[in-house]
């Protein structure tokens, strides 16, 4: 499981936790997050900006 950080705003996406409020189940890998998903904090689209991989 990896942890990704939005380069624009610092929002953390943790694959282990997923994002249930956005319909993304715990354990969802970054590559399986839907292409039309957008950062909940700043709105940057997944396609617009790659998140940075953090040491989990």
């Amino acid at each position: 499981m990896q942890v990704w950080e939005c380069v624009v705003c610092g929002f953390i996406y943790d694959e282990a936790k997923g994002l249930p409020e956005d319909g993304i189940a715990p354990g969802t890998k970054w590559e399986d997050v839907p292409a039309d998903w957008a950062c909940p904090d700043c709105g940057v689209a997944k396609a617009d900006f790659s998140m940075q991989l953090l040491a989990a």
Binding site: V8, C42, G43, V44, A45, D48, F49
Partner: peptide, 10 residues
Amino acid sequence: YVLPIMNAAR
């Protein structure tokens, strides 16, 4: 705003 910057930058 943020999103116009991201789009224009690409």
